[in-house]
Design a binder for these strands. Structure first.
Lengths: 207, 207
DNA sequence: AGAAAAAACGACAGCTACTATCAAAAGATA
DNA sequence: TATCTTTTGATAGTAGCTGTCGTTTTTTCT
């Protein structure tokens, strides 16, 4: 019923402090997020109040804001970015950076089951259609750019503030963002657009 | 005293309906924006209320929101993007797209006097330091990406939905954004970073 | 098991960005 | 001057978000 939350890996790998408290917290978080997304798609983002979400999830407003600092975060709380970076860093050292990114993206998105993929698609559509959410999403992208920048630096053994790497990372982020927007506007598989975009990038972005 | 508002060119070029009403509107808009920016830099963005800005500009809150739909827009109301596009389109047809962009950026930013440049710099610093403003700025960048996409299509005579152009534009926007962020973080001339970024882009983004 | 400590919760009050409405004031027009 | 339109201000209201505090629930210690 509830969508799978991958929260367990936030703690250290050795101990498993999955006490009753942790389980209830995870359930509450998932309930809030699920009901929020359902209400948003049913009656629109702006027309849905935090009070309604809290009521549907059977928590108080105080509790809502303890779990999600803003209403927007019920949609944009990003679980995927750190996972992507992790997969990227785990790629073998001899593959090029673009190939490593391609592999990481594939590994993460192919790992979603159909229900998760469906939910993710709905979420993406919602995000791009609501201005406030769009704005925050774009900021997330640039935060991702920064993380990617650090990862690339480490991978290539470059020193900090390498301007060429900065521009390279910026361009690649722009490509991914453009592919993302295109996939929403044109419809179709997100992964395919990313793939084509990365190929263009590898070929030097011919016009 | 008041910073130069280039509002006049929004009307059709033939008539000049610069009546008393129009002049007062321009003055009010400038007053709100100036006092807002001053208060933001003096006491911080979040700590400054709309009420304070309205009081400083000697207008009611109603009037404030008639001029600026949101508090953020006092900082982010962008007058430069359409000007940039216009200059880009006015470049001679035989220069390449990157060179045309470079020329347009130079023309626009070199056209600012020292006071305007100083104000613009303060504005840029403020924008990147406040999360809410950052988010909206990034959205503006992608709107700029869309406008640039259309302009490039027209310039190259391509048909709509050319994937290669989309990726090219996305990458270029990413480069400009990265150069922008770098110029804020590292300090130094904004134009110089843009120039170097565009050069990197022209050279195929070597690592 | 029982007590103490810690964490989570709900209720309430308050601030502020933002919207809607409507009457008064100011500018344009004749 | 008189009329018509645009702009403005006052007021009331909604909703996101914060802070506080007493209560309940869960964990930990003995």
């Amino acid at each position: 019923m509830s969508c799978g939350q991958n929260q367990a890996m936030t703690t250290s790998p050795a101990d498993k402090p999955v006490g009753l408290r942790e389980r209830k917290k995870a359930r509450t978080r998932a309930a809030i997020q699920d009901h929020a997304l359902r209400l948003f798609t049913e009656q629109g983002y702006a027309a849905t109040t935090v009070e309604q979400i809290a009521e549907a999830a059977e928590v108080s407003q105080s509790t809502f804001f303890r779990y999600f600092p803003t209403k927007e975060d019920t949609v944009l709380y990003d679980r995927l970015d750190p996972v992507l970076i992790e997969h990227f860093l785990n790629q073998p050292a001899d593959v090029g950076p673009v190939a490593a990114i391609r592999a990481a993206v594939h590994e993460v998105f192919r790992g979603l089951d159909e229900e998760q993929a469906e939910l993710e698609a709905a979420r993406q559509r919602l995000v791009l259609s609501v201005p406030d959410l769009r704005a925050k999403l774009f900021e997330q992208f640039t935060e991702g750019m920064r993380m990617l920048h650090d990862a690339i630096l480490r991978r290539l053994g470059r020193e900090r503030d390498d301007f060429a790497v900065r521009m390279w990372t910026g361009a690649l982020t722009g490509v991914v963002l453009a592919a993302y927007v295109t996939s929403i506007e044109e419809g179709g598989d997100f992964l395919e657009y990313i793939d084509r975009g990365l190929t263009q990038f590898e070929q030097g972005l011919p016009l």
